[in-house]
Design a binder for these strands. Structure first.
Lengths: 121, 121
DNA sequence: CCCTTTACTTACCAAAAGTAAGTACCTACA
DNA sequence: TGTAGGTACTTACTTTTGGTAAGTAAAGGG
């Protein structure tokens, strides 16, 4: 056992099927999860603002994705008890850190799209 | 038109359904795409070596994922015409750049798993 | 009075992904 | 010599996931 071992009985490894990190990675890299994290990077947004910003997402999928990311602690959901409903979504500190990585990937793709589409591997 | 404008009629935007960057993002963040990129970061691997390294992937999905990433120019496939078959997969320069971002995300998750699982958002 | 907006959920159907087996050829082992 | 295993896939079938459309409740505008 190495000197700086953690108080865990396993080393987190995304390559291992059963490792919890695999599920978290799955949530953050899910089709809509990535886009929700990127969208929330620029600040708090309401449900329908998110829906308008993220092209092509359905209410069902947005709702499901938000619940998943909230469950992981990346997103904070704040419901104001008024009619019509008003619900805000914002990144938690943990979410801000995670979002920076997914946004870096998305940004890199956007910035290098010409190169990618030209297939200059 | 700004001075440093690109020779493109659109600004790449992952939030837009029709933008090609959306599809590329989808490939790189697909369930097995992420893990393939991370696995190949440490060097060239054969099909079955990849399969053994990536826990839980089926041959069908690995094959499909590799073809997708090869089509995008992130991966180079080299088939040696021998029996039994011998096929090598390696990252292209473009793939190395992309892999650094997905690996950063995967690495961050692994490194912060305790915090994430403790749900200290 | 009906349409719209808000934030969802539920039922239904299509698309994606997982499982298992087939292909073709070689090596090793008994 | 026959059987098991390794190589890199593909194909058929089934299960799971994802998308579409509609329903819910209450307020406000035309």
């Amino acid at each position: 056992m190495p000197a700086n071992a953690q108080s865990f009985s396993f080393a987190p490894d995304v390559m291992a099927t059963a490792c919890p990190s695999r599920a978290i990675l799955g949530h953050l890299t899910s089709r809509w999860g990535v886009l929700v994290m990127v969208a929330l990077q620029s600040g708090t947004l309401r449900f329908s603002a998110l829906r308008r910003r993220i092209g092509g997402v359905s209410e069902r999928m947005l709702s499901q994705t938000l619940q998943q990311l909230e469950g992981d602690g990346f997103i904070l959901r704040t419901a104001h008890d008024v009619v019509p409903p008003h619900v805000d979504y914002a990144l938690t500190p943990l979410g801000v850190a995670a979002a920076s990585h997914v946004a870096a990937l998305a940004g890199w793709i956007e910035g290098n799209l010409p190169r990618i589409l030209a297939k200059n591997g």
